[in-house]
Amino acid sequence: MSNLLSLRGVHTHIGAYHILHGVDLVVPANQLTMLLGRNGAGKTTTLRTIMGLWHASQGSVTLDGQDITQKPTPEIAQSGVAYVPESMGIFSDLSVRENMLLAARGARKLDDIDTDRLEWIFGLFPAMKKFWLHPAGKLSGGQKQMLAVSRAIIEPRKLLLIDEPSKGLAPAIIQNMIEAFRQLKAANTTILLVEQNFNFARQLGDSVAVMDDGRVVHSGSMAELAADEALQARLLGLSLGAHQ
């Protein structure tokens, strides 16, 4: 199995702070890789380093065989990477429609967007069609998260980087999000997803990497981690079984 993304010995400094301490991480193509770990372990910094928002001070980031370690964020985005931050990054004063049109880099007007793809997104997230002309800032938290993901997938991407998509969402909306990611997986979308909801992680993850103190301390099959409560307790301080 080929790896779409590889991080080798990545160190990241933010000002005087040394956040990542030699991260080694691979993301297999056409799979969903979960990035788990306690708060402050370095998960968000890893995503931001991949996206070029912060640059690695040492080590390498390789995407589809190309070194992107020091490339600027717009160039990384143009190479087919979309990033959904924990803050969601939507434009609150713009409508859902306008947010989607901005995200479709190849479209200057709505008619330029692939109609079949837009209808597919409406199938994943019906609220996007219902609130198409509404200001994004008026949406609920769950609807804003749906919009953030919809923006990321309005065009085909090589890689999706998604930071805690279920945070603060009601259980019914989380289940809707899980089903949407299942469909993305079925369409052979490569995803690296940071998540604190372990039931969410277990249902979706193919592979998993666990971070602690700025390093990847475990990598392997998500199913194997989900089945090994002793390993869960050692790596994460809790059991996935307690979050069913």
Rank of each mutant, 00 (worst) to 15 (best):
S150A: 15
P156C: 07
G241S: 11
T12W: 03
F125H: 06
L101W: 06
I154D: 01
H13P: 08
L160Y: 02
L102I: 10
K129S: 14
I178M: 05
F198L: 15
I90M: 04
H11G: 09
H18L: 08
I162S: 08
G52V: 03
L159D: 04
N39R: 01
A233F: 05
A223D: 01
D163T: 12
R202L: 08
E86T: 13
D67Y: 13
K158C: 14
Y83G: 06
I154C: 05
K144Q: 14
K167H: 09
A186R: 11
L5M: 11
G237S: 03
Q145Y: 09
Y83E: 03
S92R: 05
L53S: 00
P165Q: 02
A82S: 15
A16M: 05
D114G: 14
T190K: 03
F91D: 00
L94T: 02
L235E: 00
T62S: 07
A77G: 09
A77M: 09
A103E: 02
R97L: 11
E155H: 15
N197D: 12
F91K: 00
R48N: 11
V194G: 07
I90S: 04
V216G: 07
F200C: 13
T44N: 02
R8Q: 14
N99G: 11
A127Q: 02
E155S: 15
S79H: 07
D114N: 15
A148R: 01
D111E: 13
E224T: 13
G89E: 01
A187R: 15
G214S: 12
K167D: 04
Y17G: 15
V10K: 06
Q78I: 08
L20W: 05
S150Y: 08
V10W: 03
R48E: 12
R202Y: 03
T62H: 07
G214N: 08
A29Y: 01
M100A: 07
A41P: 10
I76P: 01
L118F: 08
T46H: 00
G141W: 01
E195S: 13
A16N: 11
Q203G: 12
Q66R: 13
S6L: 14
G42W: 02
S60M: 05
R8N: 13
L94V: 05
L35N: 06
L160F: 07
L4A: 09
D228E: 08
A180W: 07
A233L: 07
G89F: 09
A148T: 05
T46N: 04
H13W: 15
N99Q: 03
R48A: 10
G168L: 06
R157P: 05
G15S: 13
G142Y: 03
R151S: 11
I191E: 00
K129T: 13
L5H: 04
L193R: 07
E119C: 12
A152T: 03
A56Y: 00
L169H: 04
A170F: 08
M1P: 04
I90L: 11
A209Y: 04
L94Y: 05
R105M: 13
M100F: 03
L32S: 06
L231Q: 11
V81D: 00
P135D: 05
E229W: 05
H134E: 14
E179G: 09
S87A: 12
